[in-house]
Design a protein around this nucleic acid. Structure first.
Lengths: 135, 135
DNA sequence: CTTGACCTTCCAATTATGGGAAGGTGCTGA
DNA sequence: TCAGCACCTTCCCATAATTGGAAGGTCAAG
């Protein structure tokens, strides 16, 4: 199977497949006589794994670890659990941050009338002038 | 005021101040005879504006626009409102994405026993095998 | 034999920030 | 007066993940 077909089958772009190979995330597989990369079902499976993990927000570095665990039959589930739990905590932290941003922005938007007047509490809020105090 | 003092006063690192100047986000201000950059209260105010906007998750490109609006007394608040509203929508979208990730991860974590056994539903879930069906 | 759709490698851009080298400046204390 | 230290300067490089493009090789169909 050529790289284009593998890309479509796995949901990972050909560009990314080459990149993952270059950084050693996946092995440098067999080549045909013409130099084209060749992929089989096992490769697709691995690429799908990577794709799923990316969709869940794991970094390539974390995925590297997950792949090692996945390939290693002697692993214990504790390691995987720990990595996933840490990642979940990361995500939850980001959610909290973003929610704080969103709340502040909503407050600013509510205070700004979106009209032709030049004074906008959003800019005042950003500039540090505590025009927000009244709200 | 030297760049180090300006950095501390504004919450923007000296490295970043130079960078913002290099990309034209802030003006190339006056230099002293020794070549050192010189800052005054107005500059600090501007840097704090940038810092606040970054804290709210605005990109430097969006901040460029916000700064233009901030400096321009003839602006109308509609533009600012629009930009902020779009950014808020972006943030809200990201929150939804992260929440979806978190939910899936929590499900997987719940199904994984974090013990010495090698079979972990997290890996199965990532690999696409719907071992999750039973849980 | 040409055309078009593949494939190859390599180089560069993106976003925001930081690290570090190599060298100049300036104040302070002995 | 000189040493030492903290600060400044510019320039290059690195990060993380992905994409775009150029220049060129391969292959099947028309």
């Amino acid at each position: 199977m050529q790289i284009g077909t593998a890309a479509e089958a796995s949901g990972v772009s050909a560009k990314m497949i080459r990149h993952y190979e270059a950084i050693g995330l996946i092995a440098s597989g067999a080549r045909r006589t013409n130099g084209y990369r060749d992929y089989d079902a096992r490769d697709i499976h691995e690429l799908r794994f990577i794709r799923s993990a990316r969709d869940l927000g794991f970094s390539l570095d974390e995925i590297r670890t997950l792949l090692d665990l996945w390939r290693n039959k002697d692993r214990n589930s504790r390691d995987v659990h720990h990595l996933a739990a840490e990642h979940l905590a990361d995500i939850e932290g980001k959610i909290v941050e973003l929610q704080a941003m969103a709340t502040t922005l909503r407050d600013l938007l509510e205070a700004c009338h979106a009209d032709a007047r030049p004074d906008c509490p959003i800019l005042a809020g950003l500039s540090g002038k505590t025009t927000m105090a009244g709200h």
